[in-house]
């Protein structure tokens, strides 16, 4: 299944999601938008880590949080909860 969303993170930026999922799990997700994330390759790491993650809010937040902490990423205009909400919106929740 394929889904897309445009989601304004509260107090943050507009995030756009392209999602491919199967049996409630993420096959592929692409996160785009006008936010800042340092270092920049961190976004691809977040997207990779999300592959296979269950499409459920807490699991998504945990996966992102793990990548953020492991790679000391600095996020401006977005946060794990906001990304999770955007992804779930793309799923159709």
């Amino acid at each position: 299944m394929i889904g897309k969303s445009v989601y304004k993170i509260p107090e943050g930026k507009l995030v756009k999601i392209s999602l491919d999922f199967k049996e409630e799990k993420i096959n592929f997700v692409r996160i785009t938008g006008d936010f800042f994330l340092h270092p920049e390759n961190g976004l691809e790491l977040i997207e990779q880590e999300l592959k296979g993650t269950e499409l459920e809010k807490e699991s998504i937040i945990q996966s992102i949080q793990k990548t953020v902490e492991k790679n000391s990423l600095d996020l401006f205009g977005l946060n794990p909860k906001g990304i999770a909400d955007a992804i779930l919106k793309a799923k159709g929740d």
Binding site: K16, R30, I31, T32, G33, D34, L37
Partner: peptide, 9 residues
């Protein structure tokens, strides 16, 4: 465009 944006979008 910003590094994380989609040109097509």
């Amino acid at each position: 465009i910003g590094y994380f944006q989609s040109l097509k979008e």
